[in-house]
Computed example of a mutant assay.
Amino acid sequence: MKQAKISEAVVKRLPIYLQVLNELQYHEVQTISSQDLGIKLDLNPAQIRKDLAYFGDFGRKGIGYDVTYLSEKIRQILKVDQIINVALVGAGNLGHALCNYNQYSKDNMKITAVFDIHPAKVGTKINHLIVKPMDELKATIDEQEIRIGIITVPAPEAQNVANQFIDAGVEGILNFAPTVLRVPEEVRIHHADFTKELLSLAYYLNREEVEESGSNLD
Rank of each mutant, 00 (worst) to 15 (best):
M1H: 12
K2V: 08
K5T: 06
S7P: 03
A9L: 14
K12R: 15
L14K: 07
P15C: 12
I16G: 02
I16R: 08
L18W: 03
Q19K: 13
V20N: 01
L21A: 07
L21S: 01
L21Y: 04
N22I: 09
E23Q: 14
Q25S: 10
Y26C: 10
Y26Q: 14
H27F: 14
I32Y: 05
I32S: 04
S33L: 09
S33Q: 05
S34L: 12
S34Y: 13
I39D: 13
K40H: 12
L41F: 10
D42I: 11
L43W: 00
L43S: 07
N44R: 05
P45L: 10
A46L: 11
Q47T: 14
I48A: 01
R49W: 04
K50D: 08
A53P: 01
A53G: 02
Y54L: 15
Y54P: 07
Y54E: 13
F55T: 05
D57W: 09
D57F: 13
I63L: 11
G64S: 00
L70W: 07
L70S: 07
S71E: 15
S71C: 14
K73W: 11
Q76Y: 10
I77S: 06
K79D: 14
N85F: 01
V86P: 00
N93C: 09
N93A: 11
G95W: 05
H96C: 10
H96D: 10
A97N: 10
A97P: 01
L98V: 04
N100E: 11
Y101I: 13
Y101V: 12
Q103Y: 11
S105C: 07
K106N: 15
M109V: 15
K110N: 04
I111P: 04
I111Q: 06
T112F: 04
T112Y: 08
A113I: 02
A113M: 08
F115L: 01
F115M: 09
H118G: 02
H118C: 11
P119A: 10
P119V: 08
A120Q: 15
K121H: 02
V122R: 01
H128G: 06
H128T: 14
P133Q: 10
M134S: 08
D135P: 06
D135Y: 13
D135H: 12
E136G: 09
E136L: 15
K138G: 05
K138S: 15
A139C: 03
A139M: 11
A139T: 08
T140E: 12
I141H: 03
D142I: 06
D142A: 13
Q144F: 11
Q144E: 09
I148N: 00
I150V: 15
T152A: 09
P154W: 07
P154M: 08
A155D: 13
P156V: 09
E157I: 04
Q159G: 01
N160C: 11
A162F: 07
I166M: 12
I166Q: 04
D167W: 04
D167H: 05
G169P: 02
L174N: 05
N175G: 04
A177T: 00
T179E: 00
T179N: 00
V180M: 06
V180K: 02
R182I: 13
P184E: 05
E185F: 03
R188C: 15
H191R: 11
H191C: 14
H191D: 15
D193E: 08
F194D: 00
T195A: 09
L199I: 08
S200P: 00
L201A: 10
A202P: 01
A202S: 13
Y203T: 07
Y203N: 12
E211V: 11
E212R: 05
G214L: 12
L217N: 05
